[in-house]
Amino acid sequence: MRIGIACPYSLDVPGGVQFHVRDLAEHFIGEGHDVSVIAPADSETELPPYVTSAGRATAVRYNGSVARLSFGPVTAAKVGRWLEHGDFDVLHLHEPMTPSVSVLALMAAEGPIVATFHTSMLRSRTMQTAYPLLRPSLEKIAGRIAVSEDARRTVTTHVGGDAVVIPNGVYVDRFAEAPRRAEWIGRPNAPTIAFLGRMGEPRKGLPVLAAALPAVLAEVPGLRVLVAGPGDPEEITAGWPPEVAAACEFLGGVSDADKASLLASVDVYVAPNTGGESFGIILIEAMSAGACVLASDLPAFSRVLDGGSAGAMFANEQPDDLARTLVSLLGDPQHRGELAKAGQERARIFDWSVVADKIMAVYETVIEGRMASQWEPERRWGRFLPGRTHR
Rank of each mutant, 00 (worst) to 15 (best):
P8Y: 04
P8V: 01
Y9W: 13
S10G: 08
S10D: 09
L11V: 11
D12I: 07
D12K: 04
D12Q: 07
D12E: 05
V13M: 07
V13K: 02
V13A: 12
G15Y: 04
G15N: 06
G15H: 02
G16M: 06
V17M: 11
V17R: 02
V17F: 14
V17Q: 12
Q18K: 13
Q18I: 15
Q18E: 13
F19H: 14
F19V: 14
F19T: 15
H20D: 09
H20A: 09
H20L: 10
V21I: 08
V21E: 06
R22T: 02
D23W: 12
D23S: 10
L24D: 01
L24V: 08
L24S: 05
A25N: 05
A25I: 14
A25L: 02
E26L: 00
E26W: 10
H27Q: 07
H27T: 15
H27L: 07
F28M: 05
F28N: 04
F28R: 06
F28C: 05
I29A: 15
G30I: 04
G30Q: 03
G30A: 04
E31C: 15
E31H: 12
E31V: 00
G32V: 08
G32I: 11
H33Q: 05
H33F: 11
D34V: 10
D34T: 13
D34P: 01
V35H: 11
V35L: 05
V35I: 09
S36G: 15
S36I: 01
S36P: 03
V37C: 03
V37S: 04
I38M: 06
A39I: 14
A39C: 01
A39Y: 07
A39S: 09
P40R: 11
P40C: 05
P40G: 10
P40N: 10
A41F: 01
D42I: 08
D42T: 01
S43V: 12
S43C: 08
S43Q: 13
S43W: 00
S43D: 12
E44Q: 08
E44P: 00
E44V: 14
T45H: 04
L47C: 11
L47F: 10
L47T: 15
P48Y: 00
P48V: 07
P49D: 03
P49H: 03
P49V: 02
P49N: 03
Y50W: 14
Y50N: 14
V51W: 11
T52V: 15
T52N: 05
T52Y: 01
T52A: 05
S53Y: 03
S53N: 06
S53I: 13
A54K: 13
A54P: 12
R56Y: 00
R56K: 13
R56Q: 10
R56W: 00
R56M: 13
A57T: 03
T58R: 13
T58L: 04
A59Q: 10
A59M: 02
A59V: 09
A59Y: 03
V60G: 00
V60T: 11
V60Y: 00
R61L: 01
R61K: 00
Y62P: 03
Y62C: 01
Y62H: 15
N63K: 03
N63Q: 12
G64V: 02
G64D: 10
G64Q: 06
S65A: 11
S65F: 09
V66Q: 14
V66D: 07
A67V: 04
A67L: 14
A67R: 13
